[in-house]
């Protein structure tokens, strides 16, 4: 599976990532960071759908999103264990 990590202290809640996400995984959270911005998150009910395309990170103006992918062969071997 793939996932994103939102660096909440860098996020300014502009939502350009949410618009770019082809799977609609990203949404505004209810959390407000130390700068006063309502940060984004991978919504709990959608995060499994992340395909690791990194479109969100590519359009993020604040280098606030890291993207992780699990290589395919590893993924297949570990499917049973992966959360």
């Amino acid at each position: 599976m793939s996932r994103i990590e939102v660096l909440e202290e860098r996020c300014k809640g502009c939502l350009l990532c949410a618009q770019a996400c082809p799977k609609g995984v990203i949404a505004q959270s209810e959390r407000i960071n130390q700068h006063g911005y309502k940060v984004v998150e991978a919504a709990a009910e959608k995060k499994e759908e992340c395909i690791g395309c990194a479109f969100c990170a590519l359009v993020c103006p604040d280098v606030a999103i890291h993207v992780y992918r699990t290589p395919k062969n590893v993924k297949e071997e570990e499917t049973g264990h992966a959360g």
Binding site: S2, R3, E9, R10, K12, G13, C14, H35, Y37, G52, A54, A57, L58, P61, D62, V63, I65, H66, V67, Y68, R69, T70, P71, V74, K75, E78, H81, A82
Partner: peptide, 22 residues
């Protein structure tokens, strides 16, 4: 499972918080 970082922070960039508007 072993995941890999496919999009992270560029090495030549500091981790300074950017002052730009949203």
């Amino acid at each position: 499972y072993q995941e890999e970082l496919v999009f992270g922070h560029p090495a030549s960039m500091t981790d300074h918080y950017m002052h730009y508007c949203p």
